[in-house]
C-alpha cells in the first residue's frame, strides 16, 4: 500500500480548492475596488455639480440636458453592488460600507435634483423613493423591485432611489423621518415625487396608475409608447 499517494492526492485536491478560494476572493476584491472607483467618480461628478451650483448661486437652466444628474451611473452602481452583495453576502463589512456610500450618493443626487427642480421650472423629474428590506421581513420586496426595475427599463428618465430601510445611516434616518416612512406599516414602501408613501407590494398595473407622470416620459422602445 502506498499511503504517500493518498496523502499526495489529498494535498493536491486541497491545493486546487485553496486556489479556487484564492482566485474567487481576488476577483471579489477587484469587484469591490471597481465599485469604489465608480463611486468615487460619481461622488466627484456630484461634487462638481454642487460646486457649480454654489459658485453661480443658481445654475443656468438653459444649459441643462433633459436628465442632468447621474441616473445611469447610479443605476449601474446599484446593479454592481447587487452582484457584490450576492457574492459576498449582505452582512459583509466591505459591502455594507459600499452600500452606505452608495446610499449617501443617492441622497446627494436626490437633494441636488430637488434643488435644480426648484430653480429650473422646465426640469420636471419623476422619481420614486423605494424602501426595502433584505433582512427576511419583506418577502415581497423582490416583486416590488422587479416592477420598479421594469419601469425603469421602460422609462429611462424615471429616477428610482432605492434604500435599504435597516441600513444604519443617520442621513437615511433623516429621510425616513422627513418622508414619514414606517416599517411597521409593512414594507415595501415607495413614495412618488413629493406624495405620501404607499405601503405593500403593488403589481405593474397598480404601480403605473400610482405614477401618472409616466405618461410624460419617453419610453425605451417605440412599441411601448
Amino acid at each position: 500500500m502506498n499511503y504517500q499517494k493518498y496523502a499526495l492526492a489529498f494535498v493536491i485536491t486541497a491545493a486546487i480548492f485553496g486556489t479556487a478560494f484564492y482566485i474567487a476572493n481576488r476577483l471579489d476584491a477587484r469587484r469591490i475596488s471597481d465599485i469604489r472607483t465608480t463611486q468615487e467618480a460619481v461622488a466627484t461628478d456630484i461634487l462638481s455639480l454642487e460646486t457649480q451650483f454654489d459658485l453661480l448661486g443658481s445654475i443656468d437652466c438653459a444649459t441643462l440636458p433633459d436628465t442632468p444628474i447621474l441616473s445611469e451611473e447610479l443605476a449601474s452602481l446599484a446593479s454592481r453592488l447587487s452582484v457584490a452583495e450576492q457574492n459576498l453576502g449582505s452582512n459583509n463589512v466591505e459591502v455594507l460600507a459600499l452600500k452606505k456610500q452608495y446610499t449617501l450618493l443617492e441622497l446627494k443626487d436626490y437633494v441636488l435634483m430637488r434643488q435644480i427642480t426648484q430653480k429650473c421650472p422646465k426640469f420636471k423629474p419623476v422619481y420614486v423613493l423605494y424602501f426595502y428590506s433584505n433582512q427576511g421581513d419583506c418577502p415581497q420586496c423582490t416583486a416590488m423591485g422587479d416592477v420598479l426595475t421594469y419601469l425603469r427599463q421602460e422609462y429611462p428618465a424615471l429616477r428610482v432611489y432605492s434604500f435599504d430601510y435597516h441600513l444604519d445611516l443617520s442621513a437615511l434616518r433623516t429621510l425616513l423621518t422627513l418622508r414619514k416612512i414606517d416599517a411597521e406599516k409593512g414594507l415595501p414602501a415607495f413614495a412618488v415625487n413629493n406624495r405620501a408613501a404607499v405601503y405593500g407590494v403593488k403589481d405593474l398595473e397598480e404601480t403605473t396608475k400610482l405614477i401618472p407622470e409616466l405618461k410624460t416620459l419617453a419610453t425605451s422602445t417605440p412599441s411601448s409608447q
Partner: peptide, 13 residues
C-alpha cells in the same frame, strides 16, 4: 414574483 409583480416576461439586461 411574476404573479405578484405582473411584469410581462422579458429578457434581463
Amino acid at each position: 414574483e411574476f404573479f405578484a409583480a405582473g411584469v410581462p416576461p422579458h429578457f434581463p439586461v
